[in-house]
Design a protein around this nucleic acid. Structure first.
Lengths: 145, 145
DNA sequence: TATTGTTATACTCTATAACTATA
DNA sequence: TATAGTTATAGAGTATAACAATA
């Protein structure tokens, strides 16, 4: 950043994006709390997706945290009846996490909560929204994981 | 959301924004850690800004957390020599947090870290970046705090 | 030997409630 | 009475290290 605070358009856009996304956080935390979930639990549930049961270590990778954290998060999700530990077919060291029927319902609610955009974004014109989406797609495509 | 997963442009843009912002989180956490800071400490330091010493309760409001949390965060920032507790001029109940000289340096580094955009955003054309910024400004302006 | 998941440990963050010193 | 900050408490998240079972 230069001394007078002036920056290029990309940096300005980045600052605005951060404010928009961060600004939603309090609402997200509140609404997830009403589901009885803490943010890491909700994110874990989303990452488990709709497919096959996932090895705990795979979830740890997606959450970019240590395996040992998954034990506790899985404990709580399992206590809430949203997830089940199951053995893996081939490797007997591995335990997978399967989303229960009830977990599916909550998963959907979490997805809805996260998908809810800030008011000003929802209020954009059709043209602005489409242009925004297209530019963001280009930016994301050119961003390494 | 509709059944088949199709959504409007604003929702798609929102999903992309979240992925861009969330995707930077691991790097931020790592780099802040190299400064010896946890995210809430770094955010607190930023919120203290460049102006006058700020009452602890004002910081709690900005961080949207309980006053009691600020005690611990201020303790750690003070131990690190980045912040000082000072009495407030009129009200003897109030203690303000003043950023030290060393705190100013770290504050600048934190701001740099946070301002660093994802590669794909920095790589946008000048036109795309400017259009993105303008649309985001409209979205943010129409979003209540 | 290496990997998976667990346990033990230590620290930070967070909210709530009780307390103090002021107002 | 009400407010600012602290303390105590409890629960959750995180990383590291050590461990058992399995590969």
């Amino acid at each position: 950043m230069s001394k007078n605070g002036a920056t290029d358009p990309a940096s300005e856009a980045w600052a605005l994006m951060r404010r928009l996304v961060w600004g939603r956080r309090p609402q997200f935390v509140t609404r997830l709390g009403e589901l009885g979930l803490y943010p890491p639990q909700a994110i874990a549930l989303l990452e488990l997706g709709e497919g096959e049961p996932m090895p705990m270590s795979a979830l740890a990778e997606r959450l970019r945290c240590d395996n040992s954290n998954i034990t506790g998060i899985a404990d709580r999700l399992e206590s809430a009846g949203l997830v089940e530990r199951r053995p893996a077919p081939r490797d007997r060291r591995v335990r997978t996490l399967a989303v229960t029927e009830r977990g599916r319902v909550v998963q959907g609610k979490v997805a809805e909560i996260m998908a809810d955009p800030p008011a000003g974004l929802a209020a954009l014109s059709e043209e602005d929204a489409a242009a925004l989406r297209d530019i963001l797609e280009r930016a994301l495509a050119a961003t390494p994981a």
